[in-house]
Design a protein around this nucleic acid. Structure first.
Lengths: 205, 205, 205, 205
DNA sequence: GATGAATGAGGGTTCATTCAT
DNA sequence: TATGAATGAACCCTCATTCAT
């Protein structure tokens, strides 16, 4: 999506990252349409025009930011999930926990994803948003595996389940970004969300 | 929120409604920021300036549209839920079903609510969005009642549960608005979503 | 070419004309690319945005100005030529004289036509520039008539002759706009140009 | 006009020429204002910044290109005219022919000269454009000589005549560059133009 | 009340030019 | 000398809002 990758030196990748961070800050604070390119440039400490060396236009900056951050999240999720000892339910629990943790650690990112992803859903549909598909696939994979090994009720459509779980989780994260929440409460919420979702799909006795 | 409360009755209320419908169509199709006031005026068959007799500005039009439509949805929900024979679980099931039904009957409204509500979340926070609170209160009320009568597990925070349920439901409705879905599949989804959510919170044996 | 003809009242046609005059002044002084839309607006005493109610964009303003002024010139030429007593040579002489006269009376217009018409030739080709065709047709018509009645040598291609005559005339008018020239000298030049061009195509004995 | 006169000889002069050729191609294709310096650099296979080692700025590049190409044309004209056997009329005829020939051989140059010279006339006036004066002087010289030896009518102002002849010729060359024309037609046009112009100024019998 | 022509602030983007390497 | 990434001033155009009719 990026127009121009000036050489491949570190200085430049750093500049690209600074721009993405400036965009993240601006989009999180004001939303895509109210964020000015010149503010992003200020934040990134580059000239306005420099942004256009790394991104085609403001839209591309949005898309690229999504892809960049989703990729980071996906890597992080895959890494953390691979380290989980225990069954499939533990991994789902970890999946949920990790989201709360990431949201607490990166409030701007949480705000950006929860607020802009939805708004940009249609916008992004045109670009197909493969990264979001990759992301959901992780969750769908967990559900599928749980259904195969009898942990989860296999009368559910795993894609529907993963979408719904994402929706529930996302809504909680939105609440988190929009209100002050103390740490204890955050873990209590994580526990409740994963318990509720898991019990919803557990294979009945 | 609206600036002008037309005194001379139905003729004006009709004009106000035409403007809101034009806004709904425009916002659903293009999103709030890409919808032009002049397009809304065209759609409503009024002059651009007329919109400012009924609404303070474009923001107010968005807020008013939310409030108007949420009020309509709330009334509809309350009416339909009041007619449900059976227990609390049946009412939750009906709550979910009704959403799918409304989304199918009013695709523009579904698109508007699912896409713009989120995006406007922060924007709307400033205005506090009491209607959304009223809406969620219906669901929270159902959960509370179920917890009191022992149908639902009362170790869950009912507000968290209702938010999560809304999130799950909303995500499914978004999927519905963004892809073609046949009627059979819609009811299958409604069934799965309500089953999953209910089992998640049922008082376990 | 113009986008919007707001009603048809005189006030509006006047505004459109003021914009065209502002454009003429700006284009003549600075050339198309160096003239700023905001300067044209200033000159016309309208807001920047008003220009876009009457013209699609800056290009359209250029095209429209050409068409408007060429039409005016064509009408003027046709009217004046129709009043000429005498033969075809007198009408050609009058054609040339009139150009010098118009250039003296409307130096901005002369500058605009001589400088921008050429530069915009290719640009205007895309829009086909029918008015320039109409203009040249007047001259071609004179040549044709002179050839038919034996005044002019009919071994010349009348279209080539009229283009060449236009080129010669246009070059002289350019010189006129770029240097100070006193009135006596202007008429001397007009006389020389028409004499030279006429003798060039007279049927020889 | 050029900032830098490369000291180390041919390698640099070659680079300067490549830049001028790139500029010619770009200006001919898109016009001065729409041609980008970076495109010229691409065409010349040099870096953008390199252009500024050889030319002060984009304006200087335009001026320098004019001067370079006009000098070339002048040399070519003087050489060819010096080889003409025959009288002054033959040399004028050759002058015209040669223009058509050069235009056919160098369409980009023809386009550049016919389209941009005029547009840049005022722009160039500021720099005085001595080369164009030199060029016209050739033609004026021919006219003067013809007037002195009685071939041409000496009641004409030779500078006016040469300007008009240039204008006529230039207009024909413009037509040539803007439309497809086959070789036969080109020579027919050359013949007609020179015949017309010569007869126009021949000393009457 | 209703109109819609007019307004003008605002912002995304371009591109000639610079300068550190 | 040569490079080309970076700069940032400049500008066309949009569109929410106003107000004379």
């Amino acid at each position: 999506m990026s127009q121009h990758d000036p050489t491949s030196g570190e200085g430049n990748e750093d500049k690209r990252q600074r721009i993405l961070e400036g965009a993240l800050a601006a989009f999180a604070e004001k939303g895509f349409y109210n964020a000015k390119v010149s503010e992003i440039a200020d934040e990134a400490e580059v000239a306005d025009g420099t942004i256009y060396l790394y991104f085609e236009n403001k839209d591309d900056l949005l898309i690229s930011l999504f892809e960049d951050r989703m990729e980071w999240i996906i890597n992080r999720l895959e890494h953390e999930l691979s380290e989980v000892q225990g069954g499939i339910a533990d991994r789902v629990r970890r999946f949920v926990e990790l989201h709360f943790q990431l949201a607490v650690e990166n409030p701007e990112l949480a705000e950006f994803i929860t607020v802009e992803l939805r708004q940009s859903a249609k916008f992004i549909k045109e670009y197909d948003n493969p990264k979001f598909g990759d992301y959901l696939a992780i969750l769908t994979g967990l559900i599928d595996e749980g259904q195969r090994n009898g942990t989860f009720d296999d009368t559910f459509d795993s894609r529907l389940v993963s979408r719904s779980m994402f929706g529930a989780l996302d809504e909680e994260l939105l609440e988190l970004t929009l209100t002050e929440t103390d740490a204890n409460d955050v873990s209590r919420r994580a526990e409740q969300v994963s318990r509720m979702l898991l019990e919803g799909i557990m294979a009945g006795d």
